[in-house]
C-alpha cells in the first residue's frame, strides 16, 4: 500500500479508523447542533504541511490527558489552522481515531463543509456538528450555497456513510434521527 507525502496510509489507516469508530459506537453516528451544545469540546488544531511525527506526538499526549479508553467518551474536534486540505484533513481524522479510539471524533461542518466533512465519516469520525434548521429555505439565489442542514439531511449524511443516525442532546442523552 502506498505511503502519502503526509506519511499516513490512506486506505490502511482509514480502514482501521473506520472500524474503530463503528465498533466503539455500535455503528451509531451522531449529529450535534451547534445551537444546542451542552458539553465541552476539545479542539485539536492541525496545520497542513506540519511533520507527521509532531502530529502523532501531540495526539499521544492528548489521548493520555483524556484517559482515552477509560470510560468517558470525550468529544474532540480536529480543527484546521488555515485552509483545510482535502486528503490531509482525512488523514488527520484517521490518525486521531487511531490515537484516541474511544473519543467522539467530531466534524465541524462550518469549518470543513458538507462534502469534506462527510468524507471524514469514512475515516474515523463518528459525529457531525453544524447549524440545524427545522426547514431549509429553497436553494435559490443568495441561499443557493447555504450551509444549513435539516435533521433529515444530517441523518442522510450519516446514513450514506454507513452509520445509524442519532442526535446528541443535553446531559448525555441521544435520540434516533
Amino acid at each position: 500500500m502506498k505511503i502519502l507525502d503526509g506519511g499516513a496510509d490512506i486506505f490502511g489507516q482509514g480502514s482501521k479508523a473506520l472500524a474503530l469508530a463503528r465498533v466503539a459506537f455500535d455503528g451509531r453516528g451522531f449529529f450535534v447542533s451547534t445551537h444546542a451544545l451542552q458539553f465541552d469540546l476539545v479542539r485539536v488544531p492541525f496545520t497542513f504541511g506540519e511533520p507527521e511525527e509532531a502530529r502523532r506526538e501531540r495526539l499521544a499526549a492528548l489521548a493520555a490527558s483524556l484517559g482515552d479508553g477509560k470510560g468517558q467518551r470525550h468529544p474532540i474536534v480536529p480543527t484546521p489552522v488555515g485552509e483545510a486540505q482535502g486528503l490531509d484533513t482525512i488523514q488527520f481524522f484517521a490518525t486521531c481515531r487511531v490515537a484516541c479510539p474511544s473519543a467522539h471524533l467530531v466534524v465541524d461542518l462550518e469549518l470543513l463543509g458538507h462534502k469534506l466533512g462527510q468524507l471524514c465519516l469514512s475515516f474515523g469520525a463518528d459525529a457531525l456538528m453544524g447549524p440545524i434548521v427545522s426547514q431549509r429555505a429553497p436553494r435559490l439565489g443568495e441561499r443557493a450555497s447555504s450551509n444549513e442542514l435539516t435533521r433529515e439531511e444530517a441523518a442522510q449524511l450519516l446514513r450514506a456513510s454507513g452509520f445509524a443516525p442519532y442526535e446528541r442532546l443535553a446531559e448525555g442523552k441521544v435520540q434516533a434521527l
Binding site: 458538507h114 462534502k115 469534506l116 462527510q118 468524507l119 465519516l121 469514512s122 429553497p138 436553494r139 435559490l140 439565489g141 443557493a144 450555497s145 439531511e153 442522510q156 449524511l157 450514506a160 456513510s161
Partner: peptide, 19 residues
C-alpha cells in the same frame, strides 16, 4: 447540483456517493 433548478428540493449526492 441541485441549486437554482427545478429539482432543487432534492439533496445533492454526498461526497461519499461521488467517490
Amino acid at each position: 447540483h441541485p441549486e437554482n433548478n427545478a429539482l432543487g428540493n432534492r439533496p445533492a449526492p454526498t461526497a461519499a456517493e461521488s467517490l
